[in-house]
């Protein structure tokens, strides 16, 4: 049942022409592949990977946030949810279905962009090497990150307007990306109270820094499998936590 909702969410995204961003991505990659050889010698591979992965991350992020914050809100606001919830469908199933649907959209989108990146890479290097595998790991990490961002957007979507939800999600994303810096700032100031606060925040906030492997992929550095496992577990734990909160809020609210 959850799956039925997920597939419909995916269909909605596709019909809303969400995947148009792929065209921009393709153009970007083509331009980069053609131009990079002319402006920088010797680092084409580096530039393509850096640019490609950064674009995949940003495009995905924009999509996750902007669709995510409307997932539940739009259905409440337009009252499409009334008839849907008259099916034998629990509210939490609806939530998870919506979540899975957007995740599916993001996964397909990311896969297609990765394909584009691979083509551009092949165009400049004429070959693939073993160390290019870390690009796939980096893409996987980006997906984990997007999954976490989507969960947060969904949570906010359960009780606030898309505008505010965007602000909240983006704020948490930035805080979670820079939490390492916030923490080191706390350590450098040598004030024990501030240090304790920043440390607490560091472990409380979702840590998006964990999923940053773009540099490693660009330099062809190998990413240990254990880190892949740990990051997967971390994302799973945090996503579950956020969805639990979303379910608790959404299952108990009156639809207007």
């Amino acid at each position: 049942m959850t799956w039925v909702v997920a597939l419909n969410t995916f269909r909605e995204a596709v019909r809303d022409r969400v995947l148009y961003n792929l065209i921009f991505f393709a153009l970007l990659m083509i331009a980069a592949a053609v131009l990079v050889g002319q402006i920088s010698i010797g680092i084409e591979h580096l530039v393509i990977v850096n640019l490609g992965l950064t674009a995949i991350s940003i495009f995905g992020l924009v999509m996750a946030i902007f669709i995510g914050v409307g997932l539940v809100y739009k259905e409440i606001d337009k009252r499409t949810l009334y008839a849907l919830l008259a099916r034998p469908l629990r509210r939490r199933q609806f939530l998870v279905g919506k979540y899975a649907g957007l995740l599916l959209t993001l996964a397909v989108n990311t896969a297609l962009m990765t394909l584009g990146l691979a083509v551009a890479l092949f165009y400049v290097s004429r070959t693939f090497v073993r160390s290019d595998l870390s690009i796939l790991v980096a893409v996987y990490f980006i997906l984990l990150k997007l999954a976490l961002v989507t969960a947060l957007a969904l949570l906010f979507s359960c009780f606030s307007t898309p505008m505010l939800s965007t602000v909240f999600t983006l704020g948490l994303y930035l805080a979670g990306t820079f939490s390492t810096d916030i923490r080191s700032f706390g350590e450098v100031t040598e004030s024990p109270a501030l240090g304790a606060v920043t440390k607490f925040l560091y472990y409380l906030l979702p840590n998006f820094n964990n999923f940053n492997a773009i540099a490693a992929a660009a330099y062809g550095r190998q990413i240990p499998l254990i880190l892949v496992a740990q990051n997967t577990a971390y994302a799973a734990i945090y996503i579950t936590l956020v969805l639990l909160a979303a379910a608790a809020i959404f299952s108990n609210r009156d639809l207007k």
Binding site: N8, K78, R79, T80, A83
Partner: peptide
């Protein structure tokens, strides 16, 4: 089965 007031669908 349920028909909401002023129904709206996708």
């Amino acid at each position: 089965g349920y028909l909401p007031e002023q129904p709206y669908f996708y």
